[in-house]
């Protein structure tokens, strides 16, 4: 579980986050949603410790991320995996070397053990047999899956994903969502996903944090979205006339 407490963040005079209190629950797919510029990425970067908040705390269980020293932070990061929007795969390394990188840096596993673990992770993301290819030789969806494989290779307790569906076709996006959701349940970890994707919200959003103008505008689960009276949520989720129509049909049927 990760809990934020009164998170404020400013860049110069511009206040991006204005007191975010939220609990990201264990073994659930937690989503941070909101319009562009709402502060989603900043909040995600604060959660993983890439940016320090101007004020507030991020609690990983009993540990305050903002109060950890360099070594404690490094220990905590060993328990964190992250999938980046642009995948952040190292171009000069093969897929296997990319996935193996955290093991090479932090473990004393033998080459055989590392190879087995790489194969296991590739199997988890249904990408067997691409070990020797380079990131540029596989598709965007496959790169996302390699990114996930690298993120879970050290069996993290916390998994973060920054817009995992961006640039993917709807079918591949669903596959990625399902994969992240399955890993969350199977590994019993806390997963936090930053997304714009309405399909993700409705399919895997077990615990949703809606940001609007730097504030927490709504929280709840996907089952509560349709009937929520929160106007900011409704404006965000059903922004297009097509989705509005679908919502009305769904409500009339229920």
């Amino acid at each position: 579980m990760i809990r934020t407490e009164g998170i404020f963040k400013s860049f110069g005079d511009h206040e991006v986050l204005k007191g975010i209190d939220f609990t990201f629950e264990k073994s659930k797919t937690n989503l941070i949603i909101g319009k562009s510029g709402a502060g989603k990425t900043v909040l995600l970067k604060i959660l993983v410790g890439l940016i320090k908040p101007t004020a507030g705390h991020v609690w990983y269980g009993e540990n305050d991320l903002c109060a950890l020293n360099k070594y404690e932070l490094q220990d905590l990061r060993m328990q964190v995996g992250m999938l980046f929007q642009g995948n952040a795969l190292f171009d000069s390394m093969t897929i296997e070397e990319n996935i193996r990188f955290p093991m090479d840096m932090f473990t004393k596993m033998s080459a055989k053990e590392k190879r087995t673990q790489v194969d296991l992770c590739l199997e988890r993301v249904s990408l067997e047999g691409v070990n020797d290819k380079y990131p540029s030789e596989i598709s965007g969806g496959m790169q996302k899956r390699v990114g996930i494989a690298r993120a879970i290779v050290l069996n993290p307790k916390y998994l973060f994903a920054d817009e995992p569906n961006s640039g993917l076709d709807p079918k591949t996006a669903i596959t990625i969502d399902e994969l992240l959701s399955k890993i969350t349940v199977d590994n019993n970890i806390t997963t936090v996903i930053n997304t714009h994707d309405m399909n993700s919200v409705m399919e895997i959003g077990e615990n949703i944090c809606l940001l609007h103008e730097g504030k927490l505008a709504w929280q709840g689960s996907n089952s509560e979205v349709l009937e929520s009276p929160n106007q900011t949520l409704q404006d965000f989720i059903f922004a297009s006339p097509f989705l509005q129509k679908l919502k009305n049909i769904a409500l009339s049927k229920s």
Binding site: Q74, R77, G81, F84, F106
Partner: peptide, 10 residues
């Protein structure tokens, strides 16, 4: 974001 990725790995 390669550097960010490495930092998150520790």
């Amino acid at each position: 974001e390669h550097i960010d990725a490495m930092e998150i790995m520790g």
